[in-house]
Design a protein around this nucleic acid. Structure first.
Lengths: 99, 99
DNA sequence: TCCGTATATTCAAATATTTTAATATTGCTA
DNA sequence: TAGCAATATTAAAATATTTGAATATACGGA
């Protein structure tokens, strides 16, 4: 891409998504729910983190439109909905499963 | 991926890369130099940011192994070398060129 | 070797993020 | 409707990042 074109582009939104995803706990949450929806307590089990902390991270992800919550009886299940986040999670999952 | 497998994985390094890239200036730098190597002053022109700021961001990117510097006469040219960063920059470039 | 151009470093102030702990809310079921 | 299980919110303290301004270094050419 030439410099003139680049000059007109703005990467603010994409950067924000990357920054939010770029946290070990949140990234693991996202990779965890990319294939299957999970509820908060499952995620907590998986990460060995206290429930409120998981909820806080999920709240951030929700606020940025990266995940969506859906009540299912007693639990609330989360799924990834942001296209860029989905792409990145899939790339990472693939890399991780190589080993 | 099942929960047991997920539990054994660590996403710390990937998260760090994403976080570093997840800054508007740095992301634009990376997308700018994905196809062509650029020197600091070209990057500065393109972003309308003071030179020391650009250098600071480049230093961070260098420290994390995301870009590499190469002197070329009077200038120093930068290129992206981190595989994950390259993948993401290419995804974003493609998206941006759609519009 | 002195000068100018290009780039890098440093440090302090402002700002943002993360963590922790306590507590609140929601909805099911007895 | 009381109690329990699941999830969410809040606020303060600790920590990390970002910015801005000043200054330093490195290299090539006269």
């Amino acid at each position: 891409m030439d410099l003139k074109k680049l000059k007109t582009l703005d990467f603010t939104e994409e950067a924000e998504i990357l920054k939010i995803i770029g946290h070990p706990t949140r990234l693991k949450i996202i990779c965890g729910i990319i294939e299957q929806d999970l509820c908060v307590s499952d995620i907590g089990d998986c990460l060995d983190e206290p429930q409120p902390k998981i909820s806080q991270h999920l709240a951030l992800l929700r606020a940025k439109g990266i995940v969506r919550a859906e009540r299912e009886g007693l639990n609330i299940k989360y799924k990834v909905v942001h296209p860029l986040a989905i792409k990145i999670a899939k790339i990472l999952e693939k890399e991780k499963l190589k080993d």
